[in-house]
């Protein structure tokens, strides 16, 4: 019983961690990423608003959310949302908080991408007297977004690594399930190591995907 590593026990906990935890990790990461990319674009556009008050508010929201811990924001939502009548289940709360937090990072990424579009493109759109909305949807964003995809991908990878925070509001991801298994058997070495290896595999394959995207974007340019 005192062996440092027990294979029997490792194989016993593996199905639970992969079946329950891995699925939850992937589900939350994908849903929250989509939310973050959509809201992030909205925030980036609001920051560029001609109305100073709108851009200032967007800026303040972005900086506040970016400078404070995701965990505390998660607690905030978990305790405060029910008080104002929004009864989300913990998974939804998690997706919303993760989505909003990462939307502020995404907003900065979009901003850099939009600024990288050459000035001549704006001037050409003006010369063709394209309306504002067409300038954005047909000229600026189609050039800005492909370039920022790799950077957005990197944020999805860091989001993936932060999903274990959800265990604090009762959503069990890879680490949540592993810790649960560990506390039942009083043996943490195997489940936590398995969780670590799973994260290594996930984040490494995700980073390969991002690198591939970077190359594709490089060719497209």
């Amino acid at each position: 019983m005192n062996d440092v590593w027990q294979w029997d026990y490792a194989f016993e906990v593996l199905p639970g961690i992969v079946g329950g935890g891995l699925w939850m990790t992937i589900k939350v990461t994908v849903l929250a990423s989509i939310l973050a990319y959509v809201i992030g674009l909205g925030l980036a556009l609001l920051r560029r608003s001609d109305l100073r008050i709108v851009s200032m508010v967007a800026w303040a929201v972005i900086e506040f959310i970016r400078s404070t811990p995701l965990l505390v924001q998660l607690f905030f939502a978990f305790y405060v949302l029910p008080d104002i009548g929004l009864l989300f289940d913990p998974v939804t709360t998690g997706v919303v908080v993760f989505g909003l937090h990462y939307a502020t990072y995404a907003a900065e990424v979009y901003r850099a991408g939009i600024e990288a579009v050459p000035r001549g493109q704006w001037e050409a759109a003006t010369a063709l007297s394209l309306p504002r909305s067409r300038t954005w949807t047909k000229v600026i964003l189609p050039q800005a977004i492909p370039r920022v995809l790799p950077a957005l991908g990197n944020y999805t990878i860091s989001m993936l690594k932060e999903t274990p925070l959800l265990l604090t509001i009762g959503v069990l991801d890879i680490v949540g399930v592993a810790a649960e298994e560990g506390s039942q058997a009083f043996r943490y070495v195997e489940p936590i190591t398995i969780a670590g290896v799973l994260f290594l595999i996930l984040s490494y394959s995700a980073s390969l995907l991002t690198r591939w995207m970077e190359r594709r974007v490089g060719i497209a340019r």
């Binding site: 969780a195 670590g196 994260f199």
Partner: peptide, 23 residues
């Protein structure tokens, strides 16, 4: 770099807190 960047901070906390003492 790859190990400490590739795994989650929570995993690392649990690992050093609960698994390392056994080793």
């Amino acid at each position: 770099v790859e190990i400490w960047r590739g795994t989650s901070e929570v995993v690392q906390l649990y690992w050093v807190m609960f698994a390392l003492p056994i080793l």
